[in-house]
Amino acid sequence: MSVEQVARAHYRQRRRLVDALAAVARLLWVRVDPDDIARSWTGLLAELVPLTNAAQLAAARSADGYLDEVLDAQRVDPAREGRLVPAGVAGVASDGRPLASLLYEPAVGALVAIRDGATVERALAGGYAALDTMVRTQVADAGRVADQTALVTRRRATGYVRMVVGRTCGRCVVLAGRHYGWNTGFDRHPHCDCIHVPAADDTADDVRTNPRAWFDSLSAVEQDKQFTKAGAEAIRLGADISQVVNARRGAFGLAPAGARITADEARMLRGGRERGRLEAVDVYGRQLYVTSEGVTPRGQAGIRLGARESGEKRDGGRYRSARPPRLMPESILAIAGSNRNEAVRLLRRFGYIT
Results as ranks from 00 to 15, higher is better:
Val85Asn: 14
Ala234Tyr: 04
Tyr104Ala: 12
Ala257Tyr: 00
Asp202Gln: 12
Gly166Phe: 14
Glu342Lys: 15
Gly127Tyr: 08
Arg188Met: 06
Tyr319Val: 02
Arg83Pro: 01
Glu293Phe: 03
Thr153Lys: 05
Glu47Ala: 13
Ile235Phe: 11
Ala307Thr: 09
Val221Arg: 15
Asp141Leu: 10
Asp240Leu: 04
Pro34Tyr: 09
Glu293Cys: 03
Arg162Gly: 04
Arg15Leu: 12
Leu333Asn: 05
Val283Ile: 12
Ala150Gly: 15
Gly143Ser: 06
Tyr284Glu: 15
Arg348Val: 02
Thr52Phe: 05
Arg248Met: 12
Arg26Trp: 13
Gln13Tyr: 11
Thr184Pro: 00
Arg275His: 12
Arg39Pro: 00
Arg212Ala: 08
Asp77Tyr: 09
Arg248Thr: 11
Val283Tyr: 12
Asp205Met: 00
Cys169Met: 02
Ala20Tyr: 00
Arg26Asn: 11
Ala239Val: 04
Leu99Ser: 03
Pro78Lys: 13
Asp35Leu: 11
Arg298Asn: 12
Asp68Tyr: 12
Ser310Ala: 13
Gly231Asn: 03
Gln74Gly: 08
Pro34Thr: 07
Arg318Leu: 07
Arg304Cys: 03
Gly258Asp: 11
Leu111Tyr: 06
Val49Ser: 10
Arg298Thr: 13
Pro190Phe: 07
Thr133Ser: 10
Pro98Ser: 05
Pro256Val: 02
Val32Ala: 09
Ala176Thr: 05
Leu111Phe: 05
Ala46Leu: 11
Asp95Leu: 00
Cys172His: 09
Glu222Val: 02
Phe350Gly: 03
Asp193Gly: 02
Tyr352Thr: 06
Pro329Leu: 08
Ala125Thr: 10
Ala142Ser: 13
Thr209Arg: 15
Ala93Val: 01
Gly88Asn: 04
Phe215Arg: 04
Asp216Val: 05
Gly82Arg: 13
Asp116Tyr: 06
Ala199Gly: 11
Glu69Met: 10
Arg318Asn: 07
Gln223Trp: 08
Gly276Tyr: 13
Gly231Ile: 03
Gly238Ser: 08
Leu237Lys: 15
Thr354Val: 12
Leu254Ser: 06
Val221Trp: 03
Thr296Ser: 15
Ala22Asp: 05
Arg122Asp: 15
Pro198Asp: 07
Gln148Lys: 10
Val165Trp: 09
His191Cys: 00
Asp116Ile: 01
Val24Arg: 13
Glu233Asp: 14
Gly126Asp: 13
Val6Lys: 05
